[in-house]
């Protein structure tokens, strides 16, 4: 069964951004560049945080917006990125209503790979890697 990330309790987010650092660390470096997850305040920290992850749509608008076949729908939901097909046009980023596609320094899309590293480094139970249930998906 395919997996996806889920923001299970956004109210517990304290804005530590350890998830962002964890995602960037997968690339073999430190810092935050290259992270596929983002956390920002919901209009000032007094209001809490917005955690932006790919929800692995069943019929992903980002893949539909891609005219070069660089974003391929994945079985069970979500997409995979084919680097050699990508022209860095940015249409996928525009198409995602959550803003869940980040970009690298050359404007290529940074798409979640559904590995769950970010969730493993969330100390406050905000994130989880979940199996996608089809009926659940249809209902949402």
């Amino acid at each position: 069964m395919a997996k996806r990330l889920s923001v299970i309790d956004v109210d517990r987010c304290v804005g530590c951004q350890l998830c962002i650092y964890a995602c960037a660390r997968r690339e073999g470096h430190a810092g935050t560049e290259g992270a596929r997850i983002d956390v920002r305040s919901a209009g000032g920290m007094r209001r809490g945080f917005v955690v932006i992850v790919c929800r692995a749509c069943d019929d992903p608008p980002c893949a539909r917006a891609c005219t070069t076949g660089a974003l391929v729908p994945r079985d069970g939901g979500g997409v995979r990125w084919a680097a050699d097909q990508c022209t860095a046009c940015g249409a996928c980023r525009e198409a995602c209503p959550f803003g869940a596609i980040q970009r690298d320094s050359e404007d290529h899309p940074l798409v979640c790979v559904y590995c769950g590293t970010c969730a493993r480094y969330c100390p406050h139970g905000v994130l989880a890697l979940e199996e996608i249930e089809r009926s659940d998906d249809a209902a949402r």
Partner: peptide, 21 residues
């Protein structure tokens, strides 16, 4: 600021990171 920073060795970096975390 949102750049990357180099580390000497990604494997030992993750090990030291995990121990501290």
């Amino acid at each position: 600021g949102r750049r990357s920073l180099p580390v000497a060795d990604p494997v030992s970096y993750r090990r030291v990171y995990d121990a501290l975390y």
